[in-house]
Structures are given as structure tokens and as C-alpha cells.
Amino acid sequence: MAFRKPKPVPFRTAGEVDAMAAAGAVVGAALVAVRAAAGPGVSTLDLDEVAETVIRQAGAVPSFKGYHGFPGSICSSVNDVVVHGIPSADVVLADGDLVSIDCGAILDGWHGDSAWTFGVGEISTADADLSEATRLSMDAGIAAMVEGARLTDISHAIEQGTRAAEQKFGRSFGIVDGYGGHGIGREMHMEPFLANEGKPNRGPVLVIGSTLAIEPMLTLGTTATSVLDDDWTVVTDDGSRSAHWEHTVVVTGDGPRILTVRPDA
């Protein structure tokens, strides 16, 4: 039986990668502006307006707005909301809140997609550990994005990063079940799906120019979630807090390159 070489993770040319980096830079700037605007008494709708303004002033278009009917330019997920929180005038931030902001932009037909979690005012040690653990897990996944690796090498690295964070912080974290990263390019969500845990050395192979959005989501408790009646908002089933970090990343000959760099952040 002949050995079948695995297919590659979809890849871009050098010029296309630079175009994606330009879109990613807009996303990074929007996220930094949103974090600067966030504080007690500020609504998530206020933050959405900040992000949309930055994106449109850069000549880009918010990729989330209108996506399958989503009404916002960001997903604003507070405390026990994992992802896909709808910006609202009724969701007003308070001291101690843990906020996850996911943002996307389209520039010249190319997509950037990134997310980060931050606290409002003084947050608990547990919440700070959760956000940092999620960031460390993302970084572990990014580090695995090298030429010749397989897709699930990234999944395994994210999982191992989470377990290492558990040892570092002396607490357990739930890896949210059923959600993960994805291919990205001229569409926001493309194949392949990238799980945030799993065995290594499976799936398509990474080549120079392969682009993926890497996005672990961790909780302080359960791995189980439910979608609210608005058909978007994903919450933890046990009410535990959640964090979400994401970067758009490309494989290069010099290792992984983050395409959604945040200015001065």
C-alpha cells in the first residue's frame, strides 16, 4: 500500500501574507483602542463603536458585522461568556470584570482575526491566572506553527501549554469543548478546523505560507458550554469565568509570524 503524503494546510504567497498582515494590523489597532476605552461604566456597545471607527478609518471593513447576521463589529464576552457575546448598551462593565474581545477586519479582500482578554480595574488572582494561562497556551500553539509540522501538532501544543499553566499557577483550567481555531485568508473561517487539544502528528501538513487563526478558550471550571436564546452568546454551563486569546499566524522559513500584531501592546 503506497504512503499518501498529507495535503498541505492552505497557504498564501509572500505578497498575500503581507496583505493579510496589513489587515491584521488594523485588527491589532482596534483591539488596543478598545482596551484603552474599557472601564467601569462603559458599555460593550461603546466598545463596539470604538472598534468599528478604527477599522473604517483605516479603510477596512469589520468582518464580523453582518456575518451570518451578527450585529456587531466585535464579539464582547464578559465573565462567564466564552465567545460571541453581542455588544449591547445593557452590558455595562464594572470593576473586577473579565472581558474577552474578538475582532476581525477585511482589507483589500484579506482577513485578520484576533482576540484577547483583559480585566477591568482590579481583578481576582484566579481571573488573572486564567487569562495568562490562555495566552501561554496560544503562544505554545504559535510556536508549533513550523514548516513540516502537522495540524494536530498545534492542537497538542496548545493542550500541553494549558497543562503547563496548570502546574505554573496551581489550579486547573477547562479547555472549552467543541471550539477552536481555523484556516483564514480571503474568508474569515476556512478549513481546516484547529482543535485546542488532541494527539500530535495528524492532519494536513504545514508549509511555508500556511495561515491559521490560533485561539484557545479556557475556563476556571467546566469544559461544557451552552448557546443562549440569541443564537450567538456562548456561556459556561457552571457559570465559571472564561478567557479567549487569538492571533492570525503564518508559517515562514524563519518560524511563525504573527499577522495581527498589536501596536505598543
Rank of each mutant, 00 (worst) to 15 (best):
R4Y: 12
P6S: 04
P6K: 10
K7C: 07
F11M: 03
A19M: 05
A21M: 08
A22V: 09
A22G: 13
G24A: 08
G28I: 02
V32A: 08
A37E: 10
L45Q: 14
D46E: 05
D48Q: 08
E49A: 09
T53K: 15
I55V: 13
Q57E: 12
P62C: 03
G66Y: 10
G66C: 06
G69A: 04
P71H: 09
V82S: 03
P87M: 04
G104L: 01
D108T: 05
S114R: 07
T117V: 07
T117D: 04
I123L: 06
A128N: 10
D129T: 05
T134H: 02
A140R: 01
V146K: 06
E147Y: 07
G148L: 02
G161T: 02
E166A: 02
G174M: 02
G178S: 12
G180L: 01
G181K: 00
E187I: 09
M188R: 14
H189M: 14
A195K: 03
N196V: 11
K199N: 04
R202M: 09
V205R: 03
V207K: 10
I208D: 12
T211D: 00
E215W: 04
T223V: 13
V227C: 15
D230E: 05
D230P: 08
D231H: 14
S242E: 04
H247M: 13
V250E: 00
D254L: 08
G255N: 11
V261M: 13
